[in-house]
């Protein structure tokens, strides 16, 4: 079994777009996926990386659950929709799993309860050519984490070790 066999696709014949269903999300998944190239919605049921049902085209206007991460048009010079194209693909958040449970988790604090910049997206630098300053102004750049941190401080959840 090759790697490609483990990646399911939806090839939309109306707009000739190949929607790639990444194994991380779709390994065991049931629901409706919107095509990145047009507004058609497909129902799929995937078990252990293989199609159990679908892809089945749904009636026009059907609400969808998720967009693919990446799609391309191999018959049109491989024009592609990169992750995070608005209205077409969803962004790649690269979120780590919650320990043992396998759910995506944003790690915002170290084990001693202090803020750590461990989630995406982060705001771009204000500098030229990718230049960055020497300080993460957490209160300004990540106000929600700052608030959460203040609560932790009050509760005594921030430790030295």
């Amino acid at each position: 079994m090759g790697v490609m066999d483990l990646t399911e696709i939806i090839w939309c014949k109306h707009c000739n777009t190949v929607n790639y269903l990444d194994p991380y999300t779709f390994w065991n998944w049931k629901g409706k996926v919107k095509c990145a190239g047009c507004d058609r919605v497909y129902y799929v049921h995937i078990i252990q990386g293989f199609y159990y049902e679908g892809p089945k085209e749904m009636p026009p206007g059907e609400p969808y659950d998720i967009m693919p991460l990446y799609a391309d048009k191999p018959l049109e010079g491989y024009e592609s929709y990169k992750p995070g194209t608005p209205g077409r693909t969803r962004p790649y958040l690269c979120l780590p799993r919650e320990i043992y449970l396998g759910k995506a988790d944003k790690v915002k604090f170290s084990i001693r309860g202090r803020p750590v910049r461990g989630w995406a997206p982060q705001p771009p630098s204000s500098g030229l050519a990718g230049s960055q300053g020497f300080k993460w102004d957490i209160e300004k750049l990540s106000p929600d984490v700052w608030k959460e941190y203040q609560v932790k401080l009050r509760k005594g959840e921030v430790r030295e070790w």
């Binding site: 958040l93 690269c94 910049r117 989630w119 997206p121 982060q122 771009p124 630098s125």
Partner: peptide, 17 residues
């Protein structure tokens, strides 16, 4: 396991760490 990152990597890649 492709899970432990610190962000950002670069201005042009906001979702990469």
């Amino acid at each position: 396991f492709n899970e432990a990152y610190l962000y950002p990597l670069h201005d042009t890649r906001p979702f990469t760490g």
